[in-house]
Design a binder for these strands. Structure first.
Lengths: 197, 197
DNA sequence: CAGGACTGTTTGAGTATTCATTCATGCAAG
DNA sequence: CTTGCATGAATGAATACTCAAACAGTCCTG
């Protein structure tokens, strides 16, 4: 047996939360897909929200690792930013990452603030942090136009959020959409060669 | 009496769908807020999904009117695009527009395709259409850099989706975030004054 | 005008279903 | 014997939707 029952449960939950969203995913579906009894879920994870949190955190953690790995290899600030974007988009369309867990409806979608939600928010801040660092590199090595790092990072992450949603949730994304989005980012932060030479 | 019961019901539904999302909004809550009996909902709207569709379409329709009005007054292509973005963001933070109905979890958030969903999608295509036209204007009057209109429109709309979500659903948006996002768009599509003269 | 059918609105208690969670019990390893 | 993993039927709460009955207007007719 490769997976423990707990692991099988978590994997099934990630698959189903990503396919169906939080509300349409029932304990019964998860237990069936994982091939274990329903009661194991509350036993191992406490309740449905906690289970979802475990799924989300795992996906986010893998995502962070990928982003850090990627940007650390980039030769300068500008390419770090563009590599970050590319890594973001690549990760988001790789089915094995269970990215959709983070995109579909979650228990945190409404306003009620919970401790669990705060844990997720902190992780998301780290996602921003990686890009902020890349932008600061770009400012130092002058490979990008002068901008506020936090503002610009937030905007670029927002752009990633938006193009990703368009690509995975709607039928509007044209061919080569992600590539064009990268071009768009590049145009917005590449220094103008005004003194051409 | 200013509102008919049917109107009161629709308004209460828009408020609550925007506050709580689709799943957390119950018939009981809506009926209570509107001050009418529960049975009236199915009588007037058929079922919960239809009611949601009515809410969403009304918001989208108002949105479209605003976008068309705005871009038609702009003096050239570039300003039409930027005015479009500004109108988008303004609309999205005006509580009286019930914009949040379109942002929170909806019955269309999962994959099952329904006829209702297609109706919404068509309306969203019109949203894109307005921006595509503005970009085409910009290409003709040379107020923007040469780009593919459909690709660029999709990217800019995606950027609006992303920054709006960041602003209204998360705590990450810094002060002046929307203004900076507009600057970002401007930088990405303004022609470079390379032949400085 | 009276009144009586007819039509559409309004009500809220009732129904059927779904689903997260509980728990009594079984089982296996140390 | 004890401890923790594992089971799945039972429980109870939530909720979308139904429906029979009350109500209100409108139109027709003698």
């Amino acid at each position: 047996m490769a997976l423990t029952k707990k692991e099988a449960l978590l994997q099934a939950a990630k698959d189903l939360f990503g396919e169906c969203g939080y509300n349409e995913t029932t304990f019964k579906k998860i237990a069936e897909r994982a091939g274990v009894a329903m009661g194991l879920m509350t036993h191992h994870f406490g309740n449905k929200e906690k289970l979802f949190l475990a799924c989300g955190l795992e996906v986010l953690e893998n995502f962070l690792v990928k982003l850090r790995e990627t940007t650390s290899k980039s030769p300068n600030g500008l390419t770090a930013i563009l590599d970050y974007c590319k890594a973001y988009l690549d990760f988001s369309i790789d089915p094995s990452t269970n990215w959709l867990v983070l995109v579909r409806c979650s228990p945190y979608s409404d306003m009620k603030t919970t401790a669990d939600r705060d844990i997720m928010n902190e992780k998301f801040l780290e996602i921003h942090g990686v890009l902020i660092d890349a932008i600061k590199r770009g400012l130092e090595d002058k490979s990008i136009v002068p901008v506020d790092p936090v503002q610009t990072a937030t905007i670029i992450v927002s752009l990633m959020v938006g193009v990703n949603r368009t690509r995975v949730l709607t039928p509007y994304a044209p061919d080569g959409f992600y590539e064009q989005a990268l071009e768009f980012v590049k145009r917005a932060i590449t220094p103008v060669p005004s003194e051409t030479r």
